[in-house]
């Protein structure tokens, strides 16, 4: 759904590194290098970031569309 705050296994805080990872992976950087430079060493924490899919973005689209329709209705 959305990036977990902490690693499921060891409890390290990883949520705050997600956005930088997502931004840098879009520029085509190597995932392993990004994780190393973010200081995520253990494979339990690395999989948290590597395997995350932000499904919340997909769900939010429905609400964005609904809002747009509501606005369009109010205009007339």
């Amino acid at each position: 759904m959305i990036i977990p705050v902490r690693c499921f296994t060891c409890g390290k805080l990883i949520g705050d590194r997600w956005e930088e990872f997502a931004r840098r992976i879009r520029t085509g950087e190597n995932a392993s290098d990004i994780l190393d430079s973010l200081g995520i060493k253990r494979y339990c924490c690395r999989r948290m970031i590597l395997s995350n899919v932000e499904i919340i973005d997909e769900i939010l689209r429905f609400y964005e569309e609904a809002e747009k329709r509501r606005e369009a209705r109010n205009m007339y």
């Binding site: 959305i2 990036i3 805080l13 705050d16 919340i56 973005d57 964005e64």
Partner: peptide, 15 residues
């Protein structure tokens, strides 16, 4: 909070 960059949730317009 230790870090002020932890994403807690996302809000669509009007939420």
């Amino acid at each position: 909070p230790v870090s002020d960059k932890v994403p807690l949730l996302k809000l669509a317009k009007g939420q």
